[in-house]
Design a protein around this nucleic acid. Structure first.
Length: 646
DNA sequence: AGAGTGCAGCAACTT
DNA sequence: GCTGCACTCT
């Protein structure tokens, strides 16, 4: 293994707390994998005593295969997983200690939203200046602070609206528990709770995971920090890797202090700085350094590279977004003609909405591309419908799932009938599905018949689920409910003959994914499939190998690298975003986070970096005019090609 | 009682 | 451009 001096240092220092400050492109993944290989091969640590936490499933998979190839056959037992996946593993074994059934469902953000919406309606908690968003945000940050509803109220009793927020939090948790479901934050929160309440469980996992590595440590939140603190408390072999300059998830509760204060919490921490960059030209690196130097709260470091100067960073200003998109597409095509594969190229932007113009232009010019993000595959309506059927089969207490599919496709069970059943369920303290089973007690006549039909259909599917695998179950259920006909009926007739129905295509893809899951998993199960599906990120779904340019947000680009990178929309109020520009005066942190995002974007590029802006752009349906982004101006002029600047 | 239609309101980043 | 909701029609 060819590692530099510092990297070796980080690899060999296996015992005790270690902080690796790894600048962008400094070979941190290589260090982490080498370290794990070293633990197994040289320090003779058993693979199953190692836990490696990564940010995405994709990163976890890459790490697993890289460890596997450097320690052939020896890396089997290493657990490489995201925080959420690692917690899920623990909870599937011990959730009963917290009063959940181990088949609990996982609610994604959409599910959380619907659930909360229902609660706000039922208890009339929503007002003009206290909206759904704030309720959800409050619950999420309460869980991050590890406060249950009672503790939350106690800690925030003098805050405005605290009583209503606490009420919503209480009811929301009660509803989740009744539905035998956990949201994303619960996965962490409940694991911490479990470990704190049950010393024997804590001890089991402390013994198990004697060596813990955490990647992208700058993006951990408070609850996640508490989790690893607990797990590593006994053996104290905690190695965290991160770069405070790349902390870009503050909005989601990431606490940059976790990395900045690591040495305060672990005074005996061994600190390694990786400052040699193996990715970018010095020009690109200097541009990045010029930008990030404007931030105040950061650990000083100086990245350097010996990969040569390379080309200057290019900046182009266009009259509008169309011209910008046209340029990017043309320029990508030009690169291709010069022999550069599309797959070496990424186009990044601040918000997903910006992808549309680019996509249109790429399609026109016949440039193959892959869009990362946008509407998550698993968030699409047709996919959520099928998954709701599966969830209902797997966990009948999941009211939200039942609610979603009871009248999809239409089977004549409308809102009035549903309301009766909801009330019946609430007053008898049973799940919606159990209420449906009591249909005669709630409604009569045709409504009762329809409900009975639904209940027996689910029962039949449940029987099928014991007999068949997930893929076959899906095939049979869509046939049973005539789901494809339903999807076709959704299409506008004018469009119908043209393209084939994309939703149908998505459903077929889901079946393929289910089949893939069954092949790649030792003991496939419906629960297992549902959880795999619940925790995937957009970036996990990207396909490698195809020669396509990548289109993605700057957030999604984190951890990736490309020979040629374009960043579009370099405009004030776009990037930096409108919100952060507004907040600038009372919350300088917001602007610093935008700047870190710019730093992340710039440092993705290996050979060339192209920035662009549009003087005029249509946002929210109206034309807006913007100045050139401050981040462009922060790049020292000597590294910038100024042909079209000013 | 349920289904279909039109329109307002909204649109950061994401496990 | 999309979703959720209120209103009207069957």
């Amino acid at each position: 293994m060819d590692l530099n001096e510092r990297q070796w240092d980080a690899v060999r220092h296996t015992e005790g707390p270690v902080l690796i400050l790894a600048g962008a492109g400094s070979g941190k993944t290589r260090v982490l994998t080498s370290r794990i290989a070293y633990l197994i091969g040289e320090a003779h640590v058993a693979p199953w005593n190692i836990l490696a936490i990564t940010f995405t499933n994709k990163a976890a998979g890459e790490m697993r295969s890289r460890v596997e190839s450097s320690v052939p056959g020896g890396a089997q037992g290493v657990l490489c997983a995201t925080f959420h996946a690692a917690c899920l593993r623990i909870l599937r074994r011990y959730a009963d200690l917290l009063g959940y059934d181990t088949h609990f469902s996982i609610y994604d953000s959409d599910d959380s939203r619907s659930l909360m919406k229902g609660i706000l309606k039922r208890f009339q908690l929503e007002t003009r200046d206290l909206k759904l968003r704030r309720f959800l945000g409050t619950v999420s940050s309460a869980k991050d602070e590890l406060l249950n509803p009672t503790e939350y109220l106690l800690a925030h009793q003098y805050d405005r609206d605290a009583d209503r927020l606490a009420k919503a939090y209480t009811e929301y948790q009660a509803a989740l528990k009744a539905a035998n479901a956990m949201d994303f934050d619960d996965l962490i929160f409940n694991t911490v709770l479990l470990l704190k309440k049950h010393e024997d469980v804590l001890e089991e996992y402390q013994e198990r995971y004697r060596y813990i590595c955490v990647d992208e440590y700058q993006d951990t939140n408070n609850a996640q920090f508490e989790l690893i603190r607990l797990l590593s408390a006994k053996y104290r072999n905690l190695c965290v890797v991160g770069d405070d300059d790349q902390s870009i998830y503050r909005f989601r509760g990431a606490n940059i202090r976790n990395i900045l204060d690591f040495e305060k919490v672990f005074p005996d921490a061994y600190v390694v700085r990786l400052e040699q960059n193996y990715r970018s030209t010095s020009t690109i690196l200097n541009a990045a350094n010029g930008i990030i130097a404007n931030n105040r709260g950061r650990k000083k470091k100086t990245l350097w590279s010996d990969l040569g100067e390379g080309d200057p960073v290019r900046f182009f200003a266009f009259a509008n977004g169309y011209a910008e998109a046209e340029f990017v597409a043309d320029d990508v095509a030009r690169k291709k003609r010069r022999g550069i594969p599309f797959s070496d190229i990424a186009v990044c932007y601040r918000t997903n909405a910006q992808s549309r113009l680019l996509e249109e232009r790429f399609v026109q010019e016949g440039i193959p591309y892959e869009l990362v993000g946008g509407v998550n595959f698993y968030a699409r309506r047709e996919i959520k419908d099928i998954l709701a059927y599966l969830k209902t089969v797997d966990n009948a207490r999941d009211d939200l799932a039942v609610m979603r599919i009871i009248n999809v496709p239409k089977r004549g069970i409308g809102s009035t009938t549903l309301e009766k059943f909801s009330n019946y369920a609430a007053s008898h303290d049973i799940s919606l599905f159990d209420a449906l089973k009591d249909s005669d007690a709630v409604v009569s006549g045709s409504a009762a018949t329809k409900v009975k039909g639904f209940v027996s259909m689910i029962a039949a599917l449940r029987a099928l689920s014991l007999e068949y695998g997930v893929a076959e179950l899906i095939r049979r259920l869509i046939e049973q409910v005539h789901y494809i006909d339903y999807l076709d009926s959704l299409l506008d007739e004018s469009l119908a003959d043209d393209d084939e129905n994309e939703r149908v295509h998505n459903v077929e893809e889901l079946i393929e994914k289910a089949a893939g899951y069954e092949e790649s998993t030792e003991e496939p199960s419906l629960t297992g499939f549902l959880e795999e599906v619940a925790l995937v990120a957009d970036i996990d779904l990207t396909t490698e190998g195809a020669d396509r340019a990548m289109l993605m947000t700057l957030h999604a680009a984190k951890g990736l690298e490309f020979e040629h990178v374009y960043i579009t929309g370099m405009e004030e109020d776009v990037f930096p975003s409108y919100q952060s520009c507004q907040a600038e005066h009372y919350d300088p942190q917001a602007m610093e986070e935008e700047r870190r995002l710019a730093y992340v974007g710039v440092t993705r590029a290996k050979e060339t970096l192209t920035l662009s802006c549009a003087r005029q752009r249509v946002l929210h349906g109206e034309a807006q005019y913007h100045e050139v982004s401050r981040f462009v101006r922060e790049i020292p002029r000597e590294y910038l090609n100024l042909d079209d600047y000013d």
